[in-house]
Structures are given as C-alpha cells and as structure tokens.
Write a protein that binds this DNA or RNA. Structure first.
Lengths: 129, 129
DNA sequence: TATAACTTCTGTAGTCGCTACAGGATCAAG
DNA sequence: CTTGATCCTGTAGCGACTACAGAAGTTATA
C-alpha cells in the first residue's frame, strides 16, 4: 500500500489531481490508514495510470470515467469503446482543421508586417475588414 | 448611439461578453443614457469588432487587449504586433503537432477494435502499456 | 531527544473566457 | 393597459485542474 505521494509518483497523476478525482467520484475513495492518510493498493495505482493515459490521449474527463468503467465492468464493450474513441478522433481532426485555418490567416496577416512600417498592415486589416 | 443589443448585433460580440469585457477593463465604460442603459458610439462598436476578430484568430484575451491598445495608441508599433502574432502562430503550430500526435495514437489504438471482440484491444493497451 | 524538513490533511479560491441564470426595471407597440 | 422585448446588477457554473493556507503528523539529522 502506498501513500498518496508514492501513488502520484507511480501513476504520473498529481497529488492534488488524485484528490480531485476522488472528490469528483472518478475514482473510489481509498482506504485510510489509522492516521487518516489515504492508502492506495497496486490496483488503485493501476487505475490512476489508466486515467492518466486516457487524459494524455485527450479524452475529456467524463469520457475517461466511462472508459474506466468499461474497462472494469464485466464484459468489455468494445463497440462502445470504439464509438467513444472515434467521436474523439473526429473532434481532434476538427480542431486540427480549425487551427490550420487560423495558422493560414495569421501567416497572411503578418506577411507584410515589418519593423520599418509606419502604419501596421495587420492592424489596419483588423480594423477595416 | 446604440444600445447594447444593437452593438452586439453589429459587432458579433455577445451581450454578456460585452459586459464582461467592460468589467475586465478590456473596453472602457461606455456612456449611459439617463435611464442607465449603456450607449455605444460607432467607434465603440468598431472596437468590439476589432476584439471579435482578434479572438476569432485565437489570440488570448490578454493579447487581444494589447493589440487593441497598440491599435489605438499614437504610433503603431508594427514590430510589437508582429512579435505577438508570431508567438501566437508558434503556439498554434505546436498545438497542431500535438493534436496530430494524438490523432495518430488514437487511430492506432482503435485499429483493431471491433464489435465482435471479446476483449477490447484498446482497453488492454490502456491497462498494460 | 530536539529540531528541522518533509508529507499529508481539509477547505477554499483562482485559472480562462465566457455563459446562464435570477429577479427586477424600463421601454415600445397594440 | 397589457404584453413582450430589452436592459440592469449580481452571482454561479463550465472543465480540469492548480495553488494556496493552516494544521497535523512523520522521518531524518544533529
């Protein structure tokens, strides 16, 4: 059994974040030592690592919670997992496209910007377009 | 002079957002009509449009505020504008790369996912890697 | 053994940029 | 005179943490 600091180190989830997940019901309340400190089993730590990986993949916390219960449930509902993941991929692709659009617009706006300019072409475009 | 609803319609900035910008000191407090309602000049509306465009380009609100004062200041400091914009472009590009990384990882994880699977390959990888 | 340094505890507030109320006042049209 | 639109202030919620404050307990060193 590990104290919260060790659980944090082993899982990569910050201490405050672990307590936050507990408050939010993402993870079950852990056992407490007689001195009231949280004690985590290897299984608990594994769960935190799972959460960390989902978050690193960009899943929203709510989805992450769903994935966790799919993972710990009886039958692994692979279809639900796939649906969730593919919706997420779709959102990621949308965000990429949006950012590319931004990048192009910004590049174009700054193209004629130079320190020698009396009046800034980017500012004029922002004002007048 | 326009009431806030009209200013919102003409600028594309939501009513609540306009009041928020005022609270945050992004825009100066507008004149008030005798009935205490905010009254916006064409110039005020232009400022809101400027802010809207900056936000649509993904500039953080703080940068947007800076751009506004650069725009309304005496000499337009084109170099500062360019620096700000290029830093922003850099951040946008970083985000794009991060999202592409995510997309690749997610695609790979879901590749073998199918409704017929007894055990979900994505979940196993999330648990064990 | 005393003390310093670390860890953990609870509870609260801050981040960013809005957005959504609640509860009231005022205004314009019919 | 009523209906409905618009406006006002003030506050709370979103997502996912993060950063304290202030207290209590634990571990390492002198």
């Amino acid at each position: 059994m590990f104290a919260i600091g060790e659980a944090s180190r082993q899982s990569g989830v910050g201490i405050e974040t672990i307590r936050y997940y507990e408050r939010e019901g993402i993870v079950p309340k852990p056992e407490r030592a007689p001195n009231n400190r949280r004690m985590y089993s290897a299984h608990d730590v594994g769960r935190l690592r799972f959460l960390k990986k989902c978050r690193d993949l960009g899943f929203p916390l709510a989805d992450t919670k769903t994935l966790l219960s799919l993972s710990e449930g009886d039958g692994e509902d692979c279809r639900s997992v796939k649906e969730l993941a593919e919706l997420h991929i779709f959102n990621v692709r949308e965000k990429i496209n949006e950012l590319k659009r931004l990048e192009a617009a910004l590049s174009e706006l700054t193209a004629n910007c130079d320190s020698g300019n009396v009046s800034c072409p980017m500012l004029s475009r922002l004002r007048t377009d």
